[in-house]
Design a protein around this nucleic acid. Sequence first.
DNA 1: CGGCGGGTTGATCACTGTCAAGACCGGTGG
DNA 2: CCACCGGTCTTGACAGTGATCAACCCGCCG
Lengths: 233, 233
Amino acid sequence: MLEKKIITDCTSCALAKRCLPSGIPVTDLYRFINIAHTNQTFASGDQLFKQGVKASHLYVVKTGSFKTQIINDFGDAHVNGFYLPGDILGLESMAGGITLNSCIAIEDSLACKITYRPLAALRKEFPNLSDLAVKIYSQALATTLETQNCLSIHSAAARLPQFLILFHRRTNQVTYRQIRLHRQDIASHLGIAVETVSRSFSKLIDAGCITKSGRIINIINTEALEEISRSTA
Amino acid sequence: MLEKKIITDCTSCALAKRCLPSGIPVTDLYRFINIAHTNQTFASGDQLFKQGVKASHLYVVKTGSFKTQIINDFGDAHVNGFYLPGDILGLESMAGGITLNSCIAIEDSLACKITYRPLAALRKEFPNLSDLAVKIYSQALATTLETQNCLSIHSAAARLPQFLILFHRRTNQVTYRQIRLHRQDIASHLGIAVETVSRSFSKLIDAGCITKSGRIINIINTEALEEISRSTA
DNA sequence: CGGCGGGTTGATCACTGTCAAGACCGGTGG
DNA sequence: CCACCGGTCTTGACAGTGATCAACCCGCCG
């Protein structure tokens, strides 16, 4: 892989206005930068953190994508969520101090690592950062609610289009139009068999809602997707 | 119903040490009490808030229980979560400013209503309250993750025991040992049919894991429940 | 060119959603 | 105190959906 050495810190980061720096006065930004390890590189398959160990950092996705997964009591993995540029990883583990899931890079990616303890100190010092933290958490809760609703749809055939709509909405926020996920991960996330995912994709292609080349999915008709999701529910 | 006029404010509330007051110095507690409408009464079926309106309050469950539900795109309701004494309602709606779901009392209950805006002001003033907010949110995220894992279990027969284990763990935290929910709500929450819930309950009773009288469920053998959940997964 | 992992498609069968009927419970009024 | 009634819960029968198993295809890499 080509080493593009365009390492930027928070002052020139395109995501900064959606990220933690937006809660800190520019004149004090250096103090945040001091506690952030920006632009850490992860190859596809690399692990950011492992389930069941001490939780001490947050990660902000800068480029690429990540998934989180839990190994449940009887040994099989369930993919909890997918994370795109601007998303923050590790929020759910702060209360308990132990990581509740593992996080794995889906493709070659960059993420910024922030140590929690000094961040908490900054949060107390800068009121806007405290507001931002609440907003970020609230947003994260809202997203998991959406996921939960998606999972509670009875018909497996309707879950995939619903998931695609939600995911597409999120990718569009960061001008990142294509969906590029393993069937395996989608299946695990939605609680259905890989074969069912595959079959559902085929139907959506036949219906003209999406196109696909290899692993890459393009959404071409959101309304039709919603229609199908509704009619098969 | 008997009117027991034992209205206590936060200074004498048994839940205070798990609630927002724990983030505020005792000498300043009166300022929190000023913005809290404590001990609001709700009859079974009453609505605390309605989906899709302006979100401006948090509610802390004091006694009884509540459920939240979303009406999705094609009109049917999905129960998102159940809330017990000490739980906080409305966290997920703060970021967007619009309530994402409706909240309904499951039985005659008490809840304390807290206006968000002045709470945010207090949060900025008292660092411990900021920490507590993060902790509460993080905990809430962790809980929804658990729910998500439960929903992603393929086998419907395994979802009920799993749910019971999670719920039982939470009820036990507040010495509230019985589970008293409508089958309808459980079914909606778990994304399965009422009849399946009923059948699963019968099997669990046959297996000796739980007992039931009317709507009240008692868990008598958690290990066996886990065993069944695992073996039918 | 051959092998490998992931993706698709097909056939079968268990599970569970649906429909229907009956049991149970709680509340209301006589 | 009892009879009635409505809603909730349970149980049974049946059919459709989706998980499982198996075979095949495709793109990627050595």
